[in-house]
Design a protein around this nucleic acid. Structure first.
Lengths: 110, 110
DNA sequence: TCCATACATATAGACACTCTATAGGACGAC
DNA sequence: GTCGTCCTATAGAGTGTCTATATGTATGGA
């Protein structure tokens, strides 16, 4: 791990990508940069994690990719959320809230 | 998954076990029951997850096991935190706080 | 006494996900 | 036209949890 301060929690990457794409369509590296920026570098999503995840999400029908041009005139695949993806994001957020609460409860137990 | 409402976040099991043992020494199944109880059944740690984790923690020197008798007169191995385990728990709690904050930030981004 | 059940620990094997490392094409700068 | 950057992509390894199974002991009922 180069500069990232923490490993990603397994199972949260899909949710972070879906959330990021819910704000605006982005290409792969764009998603990665956005997450890096919002989390102040805590999460640095490497290509080897990012692209398998994007393909998985597309396979499931939660995002849809379209080839286009990046701001720098490079060939880039832009992903956007589908309706199913929006529902999925909602479900993952609820699940995360439940899990985070449970962990917090254990950590605060006396 | 039988009745548990959520999969464990990978990487958090060690922390939950350490925290549970920091309150009082317990045998394996005791740890499992305590976590189940505190989280209202959200996390149900199965033996196949629990014992490898306990052995891992013992290997690292964070917990120490002693054979004894359970409340039901059964042979049971009681685990308790070592000084190193207490330090480790602190480190994992700080890491969790950072990760949880980063995820929350992404989810609340606009 | 004998059997079923619950308790308690333990291991094997499968599976899913992220990581490191590597690859390659396409554009811009110089 | 060569170099560096941008962008996508895949292979391979490693880690950790899950399901399923195994073993032994004590308890309780018939």
């Amino acid at each position: 791990m180069a500069a990232g301060k923490a490993d990603l929690m397994r199972g949260t990457l899909d949710m972070l990508i879906l959330k990021t794409l819910s704000l605006q369509p982005l290409h792969g590296l764009g998603v990665s940069r956005r997450i890096d920026q919002i989390t102040d570098g805590v999460f640095q999503v490497k290509p080897g994690s990012l692209f398998p995840a994007l393909h998985r999400l597309e396979q499931e029908g939660w995002v849809k990719g379209k080839w286009g041009e990046s701001e720098n005139n490079r060939r880039a695949k832009y992903y956007e959320l589908t309706a199913a993806g929006r529902r999925r994001l909602g479900a993952e957020k609820r699940n995360w809230a439940q899990v985070a609460l449970a962990i917090t409860r254990v950590l605060e137990a006396t």
